[in-house]
Write a protein that binds this DNA or RNA. Structure first.
Length: 209
DNA sequence: GCGTCGATGGCA
DNA sequence: GCCATCGACGCG
């Protein structure tokens, strides 16, 4: 089901986010990414989306973080400096797009789980697999600099998300890390990948404002 | 609207 | 043998 979003025409006065924005702990970056605009240029087209859901993976000690398996060919990018893409393949079908956070040697990342299409584009971006599919992001983008031209981000000071935090999705194996409130979402958005269970939906934990 | 389940392949 | 998913299906 493709949802429609009432979005005003957007100007181009937004500021591009640079390395300093990304080279912070994932727990600081993940909520700050909510409401920002991601631009994807591919096949001569430009797509803009608003990020509405993220998850922080906070380092090699975080058992839900791929880096906890050690420094391998797959996880290598995460050990590099923040501001690059970490794209991996999962479930035999899906590519997952992450933004590497923190600094060289500290393997942290933020998974982008959902977004809203802008500029009148109709697409369902309400899930990490759907997001990458619609934006033509695959493992060939693994490691690219996110301050370049293929994928980059813009701030949008005029947009004020209603920030909430919940547990991360699908990490029940991660022992004491599974219940950390490391998933961030814009409660105003109908594009979040899964509505929280009814109980917590009534009162999402406020993390700002 | 919600729970269950199969597809499918890279990784350790 | 898992797994940061999705969509189809059955239910009533």
């Amino acid at each position: 089901m493709v949802k429609r979003y009432a979005s005003a025409a957007l100007g181009d006065g937004f500021k591009k986010l640079g390395h300093a924005f990304f080279q912070r702990p994932a727990l600081a970056l993940a909520p700050d990414l909510i409401g920002t605009i991601l631009v994807r240029r591919v096949q001569g087209k430009k797509y803009r989306v608003r990020i509405v859901e993220t998850e922080a993976y906070v380092g090699a000690h975080d058992l839900a973080c791929h880096a906890s398996k050690g420094r391998t060919r797959r996880t290598e990018v995460m050990f590099g400096p923040g501001g690059r893409a970490y794209v991996y393949f999962i479930y035999g079908m899906y590519e997952m797009f992450n933004i590497v956070a923190s600094v060289e040697g500290d393997a942290q990342a933020v998974l982008i789980r959902a977004a809203e299409p802008l500029d009148g584009w109709e697409a369902d971006l309400s899930g990490p697999g759907k997001f990458t599919r619609a934006l033509h992001i695959t493992r060939t983008q693994n490691g690219i600099d996110l301050t370049g031209s293929d994928i980059f981000l813009l701030n949008d000071p005029s947009y004020q998300p209603q920030l909430a935090a919940t547990k991360r999705i699908g990490v029940d194996y991660a022992k004491e890390w599974k219940d950390e409130l490391f998933r961030f979402l814009d409660a105003k958005s109908s594009a979040v990948s899964k509505r929280p269970p009814a109980k917590s939906r009534r009162r999402p934990r406020q993390v700002t404002e």
